[in-house]
């Protein structure tokens, strides 16, 4: 882990204008990211996904992003024009979404999509791009890259689709990957296999990773550092290995309410939410 800071976010606020009034999704989130794996964990509505999206400027049209500072290396993300975004998104920061079914173009072969992602940012000829795409499919441990290269997204399983997504997002060699619940739709074993692939690639290529998930246990066993979010606030930030020493009652509550395989059938401790947590 180098101490060099890749991304600094200071006081990030995301608000949405909805017919029912203003919704404050993210309220004053700050963190620094080095070349590490950072987990953002929270329940639905905690603002974890909106934090990830805001970093990439992907907030929906009815939302506004405000931040004191959002600096990614030499780029000021808080004041980027649409044209400049194109040089950042995909090329330097990529995002892996939850469901590959919605992220892949259904009428294009997987190979063509990977090639397109690559050539968007690298000026190479078709033959070279094809070679790189096949290499990438191999890197995500797809056994028969040639077949998958020529397949359409619907011809692949969920785990395979997510590997393809990883291949597509990693091929331009970005410096930062934001993975928003990338494995939540998958079976447990497949989920871990996909995470292992992501793990290896990120490590080998020295990328930084923001891993967003609702699964505290999974995230703490995978990441170096964890931000726990509740109602748009970061309520606790801790090293993943220190999870059992969590101080905030919300983090502790989340850990305690998980069912355990200890043969005990008595009631689980439930989470008593306190209004003060949301005031940050």
């Amino acid at each position: 882990m180098s101490s060099e800071t890749l991304l600094t976010v200071k006081n990030l606020e995301v608000t949405f204008n909805t017919p029912k009034g203003k919704v404050h999704a993210v309220r004053g989130v700050s963190f620094d990211l080095g070349r590490e794996r950072l987990g953002i964990v929270g329940e639905s509505g905690s603002g974890k996904s909106q934090t990830g999206r805001a970093i990439l400027g992907l907030t929906a049209a009815n939302g506004t992003i405000r931040a004191e500072k959002m600096q990614f290396r030499d780029v000021d993300l808080a004041n980027l024009k649409p044209k400049q975004w194109r040089k950042v998104r995909g090329a330097r920061i990529s995002m892996i979404m939850q469901d590959p079914k919605y992220s892949l173009n259904p009428v294009m072969t997987i190979g063509d999509q990977i090639i397109e992602a690559y050539r968007e940012h690298h000026k190479v000829n078709a033959k070279e791009a094809r070679l790189r795409a096949l290499e990438m499919l191999e890197a995500v441990k797809i056994r028969d890259p040639e077949r998958v290269f020529n397949a359409y997204p619907h011809e692949t399983s969920g785990g395979m689709g997510q590997r393809v997504m990883i291949a597509m997002m990693l091929i331009p060699d970005p410096e930062l990957i934001i993975a928003d619940e990338p494995t939540s739709a998958l079976d447990v074993t497949v989920q871990l296999q996909v995470m292992a692939i992501l793990d290896d690639l990120v490590r080998d290529r020295g990328m930084a990773l923001i891993f967003i998930s609702h699964d505290l246990q999974l995230i703490s066993s995978f990441c170096d550092r964890v931000l726990v979010m509740y109602q748009g606030h970061v309520v606790e930030e801790l090293r993943a290995s220190e999870l059992h020493n969590a101080k905030h009652p919300y983090t502790k509550g989340l850990l305690n309410c998980l069912p355990k395989m200890d043969g005990d059938h008595s009631d689980l401790p439930t989470l008593e939410r306190e209004a003060s947590w949301a005031e940050g």
């Binding site: 329940e43 639905s44 609702h214 699964d215 505290l216 509550g253 989340l254 309410c257 998980l258 069912p259 009631d267 689980l268 401790p269 439930t270 989470l271």
Partner: peptide, 10 residues
Amino acid sequence: DVSIQAEVLN
């Protein structure tokens, strides 16, 4: 969500 899961399981 896990906290809701605990309530429903209980």
